[in-house]
Design a protein around this nucleic acid. Structure first.
Length: 483
RNA sequence: GGUCCCAUCGUCUAGUGGCCUAGGACAUCACCCUCUCAAGGUGGAGGCACGGGUUCGAAUCCCGUUGGGACUGCCA
């Protein structure tokens, strides 16, 4: 019995940040390492101004997608306001709090040029009673130091004199983050607090609150083990911002990153498995992950690297799995979940699932994200390929040889045993008659049929497309006006 | 400004005093393969921020400097 209990406590103030996803993952990993580990989800929704219900759904969806199953919860911080009030009463009765009527401006004015402390303790001993504009502050310890025994960083020491008397409850009576958080963690019997490094500076305050609550309440609980994860930063080495950086988990899912890739890559942000292998399955993550081995320095979220890894994961799929995985992008009308703002290029009537099953293997090793799939195979389902004008000009429009070759191809393909091998051979011969290597000879045909100079293997594609359709497309290309 | 954290190739990292003329991955360059594009293969370039110590020996320990970051709300 480890009795280990961790919590993941996002606030629903926007889409699901990749940094949150990593914090959730690391908490989950730690919980799963113990047979009796408990992973708790708590929605910190007490800032009514910024929280929106729809974002809660986003958190739940994202967690489900990542496969981070929750043992207890989701709890809502807003459901605990009574408990918060009780904690506040207890601290008040224990003499840990005092009323303060200073405005933000007052505090700033007194500080003047000396911006050293946060709050100067002005109201500490004024013995104020509760009034319409009195916030409640916590009387922090003056002497000695508070040591955070961080599981990632080791001992971090704070001189108590540098910790100012912070506000625990607004003048309206609403209990603020630090107390609410500590109160909730006590209620949930949290043993390990694993969160971003941006909370490290706040930790001594929360430890003081925890000890004070131990003093004034009936239950003494050990201060949790803290672990502060290195921040995820952008290219400017700043903390990833929801406003400025492309960091929404949902958008990566929309683009067609696999859940397995995302989890694997996230784990590499601050941690690494032993050996030279970076592609590690979830089971290995659970086995090998250790807070002690988490890096101390911030990490840049490199989408390029994750994209490459996603390609590897896609290629690892069986053909059947790949077809299934593509569904939200190629036939979203059949799936429960579908990417936002990404309609396939074709309609339900135009799409042919049986044909897609045959086409899929041709592109499985060519895409790095599932979102790339539709554009690569549009010509199989569209009435006319989405013609790349520049490609057309180069291979057909402005190239007499190309046009001649198409004319010859139409004739040659008209009565030919229809399979990739014969088409391949026929195109070689077509080229030889014009002294063109195959790579030149296939270009006009590819362009005419697919609308592009790049794409899946041509002859296999023609075989699947069929003779009639191929001939139509070749003739259409010849009839196309030259720009 | 104060408090705290951090510092190995462009990026993510391995490295816990000798195995390091510093390993891997992404990105990048060259070549090979090849019907295009990818994928794959081979090879190349590229890093211990700086200065002092400690030690027979330092990327690894200590101090300082410089640089970056977080926090510093009656937000969470």
């Amino acid at each position: 019995m480890s009795g280990l209990r961790v919590r993941f406590a996002p606030s629903p103030t926007g889409f699901f940040h990749v940094g949150s996803a990593r914090t959730g993952l690391f908490n989950w990993l730690i919980a799963r390492q113990q047979p009796d580990g408990v992973f708790i989800l708590r929605i910190e929704d007490t800032d009514a101004d910024r929280n929106r219900e729809e974002w809660v759904g986003g958190i739940l969806d994202a967690l489900a997608w990542l496969g981070l199953n929750v043992d207890e919860g989701p709890f809502r911080q807003s459901d605990n306001v009574m408990a918060h009030a009780v904690s506040l009463e207890q601290l008040m009765a224990g003499g840990y709090l005092y009323y303060c009527d200073c405005t933000v401006e007052d505090v700033a004015a007194r500080k003047g040029t000396d911006k050293t402390p946060g709050y100067d303790g002005f109201c500490r001993d004024r013995g104020l009673q509760r009034g319409p504009h009195t916030a409640l502050r916590f009387r922090t310890i003056d002497e000695g130091q508070t040591i955070v025994h961080d599981a990632v960083r080791g001992a971090v020491e704070f001189a108590n004199a540098t910790i100012d008397d912070f506000v625990v409850a607004r003048s309206s009576g609403i209990v603020l983050y630090h107390l609410a958080n500590v109160s909730d963690d006590r209620k949930d019997r949290i043993t390990h607090v694993i969160r971003g490094e941006d909370h490290l500076s706040n930790t001594p305050k929360q430890m003081m609150l925890w000890e004070a609550l131990n003093d004034v309440s009936d239950t003494r609980l050990p201060v949790p083990i803290y672990a502060h994860l290195p921040l995820l930063v952008n290219e400017q080495r700043k903390k990833l911002s929801k406003r400025k950086d492309p960091v929404s988990t949902e958008s990566f899912r929309d683009q067609g990153y696999l859940s397995a890739t995302f989890v694997n890559y996230l784990a590499l942000m601050g941690w690494s498995p032993h050996g030279d292998q970076e592609k590690v399955p979830r089971s290995t993550l659970i086995e090998e992950f250790r807070l002690e081995n988490v890096s101390h320095s911030p990490a840049f979220f490199d989408v390029k690297k994750m994209t490459h890894m996603n390609g590897e994961y896609i290629r690892d799929l069986t053909p059947e799995e790949f077809v299934g995985a593509c569904a939200p992008w190629v036939c979203p009308w059949t799936t429960q979940w579908r990417p936002t703002d990404r309609e396939p290029l074709w309609s339900e009537e135009q799409f042919d699932p049986a044909l897609f099953t045959l086409v899929a293997p041709l592109i499985q090793e060519r895409v790095a994200t599932l979102g790339e799939v539709p554009a690569m195979i549009g010509f199989f389902f569209l009435d006319a390929p989405d013609m790349d004008d520049a490609a057309f000009d180069k291979a057909i429009g402005g190239d007499p040889l190309g046009r001649t070759l198409l004319v010859d191809a139409i004739e040659r393909f008209a009565d030919l045993e229809w399979n990739a091998a014969t088409l391949h051979q026929a195109t070689i011969e077509l080229g030889e008659s014009m002294e063109l290597p195959l790579r030149k000879a296939q270009a006009p045909i590819r362009c005419a049929v697919t609308g592009s100079l790049v794409g899946p293997p041509l002859f296999e594609s023609l075989e699947l497309l069929g003779r009639d359709r191929t001939l139509v497309l070749l003739r259409d290309a010849l009839a196309r006006p030259i720009t």
